[in-house]
Write a protein that binds this DNA or RNA. Structure first.
Length: 263
DNA sequence: ATGGTTGCTTAGCAA
């Protein structure tokens, strides 16, 4: 809590929730977010550390699987699940989406496929999944409703969003096709909160474990909190919590936080 | 430099 009733909404790819509990719980205690969307929990639902997180003060909605992927939404308030995965008749075998209502808000937590390499079939799957998500917004959501779409999008939207936009052009995370798929979310009616509040500031949310990328600040801004227009006047600030990437055994991603004025 | 590191699961995959 910020002490004035503001809501803190966060998204964090933790790269295994069980491995990261020693950092996640102190982070929850120090930052006191109201809602936290997690990605890459990498755990089946019956092994999710729900009790420890309950003791830290959070309800949880979870959609996990063994070894890979997995999303969860933690909230100070009880959660109602609107949808687990896209539910459109396409492949839903990977745990990548949770659509929930909590504390008077609707949030969609996504872990968009990484895509591996542009030449890989996984990249085709990524583009198809993003098109399915756009369709999900069109069919099951309304740009006139207060809605938050956040998570690991695995897309750096603009040149400012990666350390080497020339070298990265046409590669995974910054390919024109995935940038266009991301732009479609914005055209539908979502606003990128971090970029809205910091139009000209390079900020990254992911640094590869390899190549000493973090100390060199060779990063990408691929984790996003998007909001529909009705929420924008309430969004006071949005930022990357870079401190959470420092120190021993970090995730390769930092949390992104948006601060909303109360209704 | 098709390099490098981390996590899950145990040698190979995903990121």
């Amino acid at each position: 809590m910020t002490g004035d009733g503001a809501l803190r909404i966060a998204t964090w790819n933790v790269n295994s929730v069980r491995k990261r509990m020693g950092r996640l719980v102190p982070w929850l205690e120090s930052r006191s977010p109201d809602v936290v969307c997690l990605q890459e929990t990498k755990v089946e639902d019956d092994l999710f550390p729900e009790e420890a997180l309950r003791e830290a003060g959070y309800h949880a909605a979870i959609l996990g699987q063994k070894t890979y992927n997995g999303v969860a939404v933690l909230s100070r308030h009880p959660l109602e699940v609107v949808s687990r995965n896209l539910g459109d008749g396409g492949d839903d075998t990977q745990a990548r989406l949770l659509d929930v209502r909590t504390g008077g808000l609707r949030l969609i937590d996504v872990y968009i496929p990484n895509g591996k390499e542009v030449e890989d079939p996984a990249f085709v799957y990524k583009l198809e999944w993003m098109a399915r998500l756009a369709r999900y917004l069109e069919v099951r959501c309304d740009p006139g409703e207060p809605l938050i779409l956040c998570g690991d999008f695995n897309v750096a939207p603009e040149p400012i969003d990666l350390h080497d936009p020339v070298g990265g052009d046409g590669k995974v995370l910054f390919h024109p096709d995935e940038r266009e798929a991301f732009a479609r979310f914005l055209r539908w009616g979502m606003v990128d909160t971090v970029r809205h509040h910091h139009p000209d500031t390079p900020v990254f949310s992911f640094w590869d474990y390899r190549r000493l990328a973090f100390p060199r600040n060779e990063g990408y801004r691929i984790d996003h909190i998007l909001v529909t227009r009705p929420l924008l006047p309430r969004c006071r600030e949005a930022f990357v919590d870079r401190e959470a990437r420092k120190g021993k055994e970090p995730s390769d991603h930092a949390p992104v936080v948006a601060v909303l004025d109360p209704l």
